[in-house]
Design a protein around this nucleic acid. Structure first.
Lengths: 146, 146
DNA sequence: GTTGTTTATATCGTTCACGATACAAATATA
DNA sequence: TATATTTGTATCGTGAACGATATAAACAAC
């Protein structure tokens, strides 16, 4: 078996597994509020700036609209957001937080810290995290422009 | 907007995005051979050691059998593996590479290097990758034991 | 203004992930 | 040897991701 094909030598497998496991770490908290992790991401984006077109949210999350549209529809069904046609541009679907959606921010106030703490370990500390962020950002930037 | 809720401060979002984008980088190559990225991972595991039960493959990939079973069935339908009842333990489903499955290794010989090169950038180099691997491994280990 | 192109969103089909659950074989216990 | 428990795999339902495609509004060129 060649080295290059070993699972231990794959960056992608590590990213894929780390991503899956950390996403799982969110679920015990998020599911109490009927949210999934991608829906939580959409909330982060909307808390940042409300009343955005679908396109805007998709771009921020680096996802396609065919992923984001059904996600937002499920959030609408849950009463977390409303979706209405844009006035300036009738093609745009403007997504807006409901009262419930805004109030979720207070209810989820402990989530970032809880998950943040769960990840801390020997080589991942407040000191080393910026370096990790930098590398991941570089990878994302590199892959985006291809 | 509080700092802790900003997308820029989320480790998970970075891992999620980096994982998605690097997985996408595999597709132009893998799709030529009718493979998806998770199927490629299953092949890596089988090339490492052939004739393994489903459970063994799932554990190696840190996935549940309810994810791996349908994946292997699709690979069986593609003629890449066979699945047969174990002799020692009739509950086990032994997965075995076909000739086509074994030969794919030669055909995909350039894949690890191609994808590896696509990721290289300022902060991710042969020198810094081991450090990144270490941090991701620590995160995975940390989250696994919770 | 008619025609052509771009843009914003949505629909459809396929493949993952994964919780919940089912079921039969294997093993342990009484 | 019956009965209970564990183990290995599979089934089902839901929610992503994403390529391909559709549709309508906006915009451009003529």
């Amino acid at each position: 078996m060649e080295e290059k094909f070993k699972l231990e030598n794959q960056l992608c497998f590590r990213l894929y597994t780390a991503s899956r496991l950390i996403t799982q770490a969110y679920y015990p908290i998020l599911s109490k509020f009927g949210l999934t992790y991608p829906q939580y991401l959409a909330l982060l984006v909307l808390w940042e700036k409300d009343e955005r077109p679908v396109n805007d949210i998709a771009r921020r999350l680096m996802l396609e609209t065919n992923t984001v549209t059904p996600l937002l529809k499920r959030m609408e069904a849950e009463g977390v957001v409303t979706r209405g046609q844009g006035k300036k541009d009738a093609r745009q679907m403007i997504v807006k937080l409901t009262k419930k959606g805004r109030e979720l921010q207070k209810k989820l106030t402990d989530v970032p810290e809880t998950v943040g703490k769960a990840v801390l370990c020997e080589s991942v500390t407040p000191e080393t995290v910026p370096g990790l962020f930098g590398m991941l950002d570089d990878i994302i930037k590199q892959l985006k422009q291809q």
